[in-house]
């Protein structure tokens, strides 16, 4: 699976949690999930669980700490599915 494919699926998963839809339209690897997309921090765990279901992977607690941007998500998922 390519990074672009993962990113597209990540953005799709994030969509229902995003408060700033304009920022989502221009989202890239450097886009910060909490600050730029205004995702509620309390919902971040739901996003992570959705990643687990979508990509059939298991994400550890400490992995969540490294998830700040869309690029972080793509990198983490790429590493898990590899």
């Amino acid at each position: 699976m390519t990074a672009k494919e993962i990113q597209d699926r990540v953005v799709k998963i994030l969509t229902p949690y995003v408060k700033d839809e304009k920022a989502l339209a221009n989202a890239g690897p450097a886009t910060n999930i909490l600050e730029d997309l205004k995702v509620n921090s309390a919902r971040l765990v739901d996003v992570v669980l959705a990643f687990e279901d979508e990509f059939d992977i298991e994400i550890a607690d400490e992995d969540v700490d490294s998830v700040n941007t869309i690029g972080d998500c793509v990198g983490l998922i790429h590493q898990k599915v590899a």
Binding site: V45, V48, L49, E52, E58, I59, A60, D61, D63, V64
Partner: peptide
């Protein structure tokens, strides 16, 4: 459960 699911 394990990981994030266990914590939740």
């Amino acid at each position: 459960q394990r990981g994030v699911r266990a914590s939740l």
